[in-house]
Amino acid sequence: MRRYTYPCPLRWADADADGHINNAQFLRYMEEARTRMFREMVPTDEECRRQNAFVVARSVIDYRTPLHYRHEPVDVDVWVGTASAATFELAYEIHDANHLYVEATTTIVAYNLNTGRPRRLTEPERAFLARYSEP
C-alpha cells in the first residue's frame, strides 16, 4: 500500500479574520488531492469521462487542531480504505511534520453522467485503487 501525497498550498483567502483556515476549505483541499491522484485513471476523452465519472456521496471530517494561514503548504495524504462493486471510500490526513490537522473520509460512487445512474467500477479502475488500498 502507498498513499498519494499532495503538497497543498494555502491561500490567504482561505483564512478567517483570526488567521485560521476556514473549516469548509478542508473539503476543497481534499478535492484537490483526490483529483490530482485520479489524473492517470480518468479518461481524457470527454465522452468517456462522462460515462466513467465519480461523485462524492458522503464526507466526514474530524478536525484535530486549528491550521493557521502560512506560506508553506500542508500535505494531504489520500488512500483507499474500502471498495465494493460501485463505491469506494477514500481516507485523508491533512498534516505537516508537527501536526495532524484533519482526518477525513469520502464515499465515492462510480457514476455515468449521461444516464444519471451509478455504474460498476471497471477492472482498470479497480487495479488503480488497489495500488492505494490500505486495510
Rank of each mutant, 00 (worst) to 15 (best):
Y69A: 04
V78A: 11
Y6Q: 13
L121H: 07
A86D: 09
A57C: 05
C48K: 14
T122H: 09
V56I: 14
F38D: 06
R58V: 07
V74F: 02
A53K: 01
V76H: 03
A33L: 04
N112I: 08
H95C: 06
N52E: 15
L113H: 05
P7S: 12
M30R: 04
N112A: 09
R119Q: 06
F54E: 06
E31P: 01
H99F: 13
A110E: 02
Y69C: 06
T44P: 00
D62L: 14
L90T: 12
H68Y: 09
P43C: 06
H71D: 15
P124Q: 06
T44Q: 12
V78D: 08
E32L: 09
D16H: 06
T115Q: 10
N22M: 13
P124S: 02
P9T: 14
H71I: 10
E32S: 09
R119T: 09
R131G: 07
S59C: 15
C48G: 11
A17H: 13
A130P: 00
T115V: 06
S59V: 15
D77T: 07
V74E: 04
Y4E: 11
F26M: 03
I61W: 07
T87K: 09
Y4T: 06
Y6S: 13
E47W: 13
A85F: 06
R120T: 03
D16A: 01
E32C: 09
R70A: 07
R49D: 04
D77M: 05
R126L: 13
G116L: 02
A17V: 15
W79C: 09
T5P: 01
S84E: 09
R36C: 13
M1L: 15
S84R: 11
